[in-house]
């Protein structure tokens, strides 16, 4: 007996993600989903932004990691609401994890929710978690070919942060090649060059977060 189904496998996750999005919209909160490889500097970039946003934008943070609460402890020192989602070895955040974590955040006291996804350039890209916008972060030490090797992330975001640019003199990173890979995958992409050590580009990074606080940008369905 053959039964035609034709149903999206991600339907359930996508429905929960829509629920998250609706809840955030009702509370007037924008959510930015940060996706990168482990060690690209996501937590440092968040920490750098928290100081600059203080007094202007009320920020909450969701930290996704397979294990430990180390990142949440780093963020908590800045005095902002933070929830650590431990995925118990899981390689990405899914909408239901984010949905449950929202229960533990004071949504009426937040304008901007920064979600640090699990460090991974593959799996997190496949799961809509109800974000308003998505940011890809690559550090120079990872190599310029990352967009070519992990194209989907760069097709589904308009903002790419190139972090650790202070290391450029020491690594074989062909920035022109990197830019051309990114532009080829998404001509609308804006690339922001940052270094948390020297502070270069951090103003622009903060302004991106402020913009995401104001305007809703399209996220892949």
């Amino acid at each position: 007996m053959h039964v035609e189904v034709v149903q999206k496998v991600m339907k359930l996750n996508d429905e929960i993600a829509e629920g998250v999005r609706a809840r955030l919209r009702a509370a007037n909160v924008r959510a930015v989903n940060l996706i990168s490889a482990p060690g690209s500097g996501k937590t440092s970039l968040i920490e750098a932004a928290l100081g600059a946003l203080r007094g202007h934008v009320r920020v909450g943070v969701l930290e996704g990691d397979p294990d430990t609460t180390l990142d949440a402890e780093r963020i908590a020192k800045h005095g902002v609401p933070v929830v650590q989602i431990q995925t118990a070895g899981g390689c990405h955040l899914e909408a239901n994890l984010v949905s449950r974590a929202l229960d533990r955040l004071p949504l009426d006291a937040i304008d901007l929710l920064i979600i640090e996804n699990v460090g991974n350039l593959v799996c997190p890209v496949e799961f809509d978690i109800g974000e308003t916008s998505r940011v890809a972060i690559v550090s120079t030490a990872e190599g310029h070919d990352k967009p070519a090797k992990y194209p989907k992330l760069f097709r589904t975001t308009d903002t790419v942060v190139l972090n650790k640019i202070d290391l450029l003199p020491y690594v074989d990173f062909d920035e022109a090649q990197f830019n051309s890979y990114v532009q080829n995958l998404n001509p609308r992409s804006r690339i922001i060059r940052t270094s948390c050590r020297t502070g270069e580009g951090l103003e622009e990074w903060v302004s991106v977060l402020r913009e995401s606080h104001r305007a809703e940008t399209a996220v892949r369905g």
Partner: peptide
């Protein structure tokens, strides 16, 4: 990424 059919 679609489930297209199931044979029972």
């Amino acid at each position: 990424l679609i489930l297209t059919s199931v044979t029972l």
